[in-house]
Nucleic acid binder design. Structure first.
Ligand SMILES: [Zn+2]
Ligand SMILES: [Zn+2]
Ligand SMILES: [Zn+2]
Ligand SMILES: [Zn+2]
Lengths: 132, 132
DNA sequence: CTTGACCTTGTAGTGGCTACAAGGTGCATA
DNA sequence: TATGCACCTTGTAGCCACTACAAGGTCAAG
């Protein structure tokens, strides 16, 4: 099938698929007589794999690693697990950082009494209010 | 003071300060005889403002807007508030998205029983297990 | 006089796409 | 047959907010 169809089936845009090919993460498929990329089900499966991993926030290097590992059926999956655990860790850190942002933003917004800018607690907080 | 000192005082790296100047977000300071940038307390205050806003996750366009608004003392702070609220909203969306990631990752990791890759539930999930 | 910390400019790289531009191909319809 | 239209091709540049590096200038201490 052509790139547009595999794009629809996998949820990965055609431009992105070409990008993955350039980057070497997806092997180049055969071409039709008219030089169109001609994908089979294997490539579609790989793209689905990539999209799921990306949706879970794995970086492209992580995805590369996961793809390689996924082909080594007989090896232990310890490497997969530790990669996933490390990633979960990162996600949790990111959540924690964003929750701090959220709390600070909420406090700022709550403290503002809709006055003039010179009295605005939001501007005040940003300008100098806390810290040395 | 020179760029290194203001960098230390504000927590904004020298390279970043020069970058802000190129981008027009920070006005170019006077220069010493030897062509070094010579900052006063106002620029330092602006940089602190920028850093605090960035730490709270505001985008550079947002920061620009906030800086402009911060100079208009007599206007109502409604624009500031709505900008902050919109940003808080985005942060909350991001947290929600990351929590979904986290939960899915946790489930995947918990379901794996440290076997071979061909039996790994993490690889399975990525490859095809859920969805059409 | 040399060392080393600091400063200057400019350019290119990061991640992960996304958006063109300019042209070729394939199929349905008038 | 012609025409339109959707689709495909390549290559390049842009996005965000920096960050790194190269090649050189300046200044105070020892
Ligand atoms: Zn990761
Ligand atoms: Zn306010
Ligand atoms: Zn914002
Ligand atoms: Zn496993």
């Amino acid at each position: 099938m052509r790139i547009g169809e595999v794009a629809r089936k996998t949820g990965v845009k055609a431009e992105t698929i070409r990008f993955y090919e350039r980057e070497g993460i997806l092997t180049a498929p055969p071409r039709t007589r008219s030089n169109y990329r001609d994908y089979g089900p294997d490539e579609a499966a790989t793209l689905t794999f990539i999209r799921r991993a990306r949706d879970l926030g794995f970086s492209m290097p992580d995805v590369r690693e996961l793809l390689e590992l996924s082909n080594e059926d007989d090896r232990s999956c310890a490497a997969v697990d530790s990669l996933a655990r490390a990633h979960l860790d990162q996600v949790e850190r990111k959540i924690a950082a964003l929750q701090i942002m959220r709390d600070e933003l909420s406090r700022m917004i709550a403290s503002c009494e809709q006055d003039t800018i010179s009295d605005c607690r939001i501007i005040d907080t940003l300008a100098a209010s806390h810290g040395p």
